[in-house]
Amino acid sequence: MAQQRFRLEVVTPQRLLVSDEVDEVTAPGIEGEFGVLPGHTPFLTALGVGELMYRIGGEEHFLALRHGFAEVQHEKVTVLAEEAEFPSEIDLSRAEAEKAEAEADLQRLSHESREYAEAQAKLERAVNRIQVASRHLR
């Protein structure tokens, strides 16, 4: 089993990010983080906001992910994300600015308004980017 790898593909509407043979994947499912090893039962799940990790040998790679879904098959995992970025692509100062902006909006807006939900989503996204970037950037 140890030698068996499976294919991981991560795509967004804009581009193909990852297409590789990997040993392990963990992804932020909407009902909690899940891990996939070779031979996993096929399933389809919606993804939340969070961090996707994939391991090739001893090497771990990370991606900041925002919404989408993952299809797990026996030899293949396909992740369709609305947005995905490598930590190296994240502009930390911009993410910080967005976070501050979203926090200010949340203070100002009433809880029922549509903008409030939008600001919440924006905050969640900024925080995720900051976490992923700061954790994995040397």
Binding site: I30, P42, F43, L44, T45, A46, F69, E71, Q73, H74
Partner: peptide
């Protein structure tokens, strides 16, 4: 149509999303 999936949270949810 190959695989019988497990849908998480549910088929309706996925369809609404997709």
């Amino acid at each position: 149509s190959t695989t019988e999936y497990i849908y998480e949270p549910s088929e309706e949810y996925m369809l609404n999303w997709v």
